[in-house]
Amino acid sequence: MKENNNGPEILLEISAYLTGFEKADLLGTGMLDPYYRYTVNQYVNADDSSTLQSFLMESKDIVDTFGPDEDAVISAVKSRFLPYSKFNTLVTQIVTMWYTGEWNGNIISIDGYTKGQAYVQGLIWDAAETHPPGAKQPGYGSWAKEPINSKGNIK
């Protein structure tokens, strides 16, 4: 597939709408670049890189056309990606990747310093206000406390 220089950026933009998390949350996982490369590899290996390529172009078009009007972007995402379409599988894969670190039911394995991070950085843990068992431990006795929510409203 043609190298898309803005690929990670577009994936980030559209993933924020697909997952419901802020871009900063996604960036904070440190997984954007490895996930982008992983997705590209999966589609290149399946000899289907044109689907990914047109998905990214479509995503860019939605964001360019409707952003920063959040509601308009979301309704465009809903109408153009979520019904049965040629992007349906890819969109599901992307959402599942961010939330669980899995791809088609297998934990994503990436070499380099993000090895083993896919599971740890899954959004599912934050969404459920818990932590990945075996990682990001919250401290002894924390199970007896409400989850610490120190996110604050800026005064």
Binding site: K136, Q137, P138, Y140, G141, S142, K145
Partner: peptide
């Protein structure tokens, strides 16, 4: 004891 939980939270942030 609660401070330790806050420390972990701070680390992840």
């Amino acid at each position: 004891r609660e401070g330790i939980m806050i420390m972990f939270d701070m680390k992840y942030k």
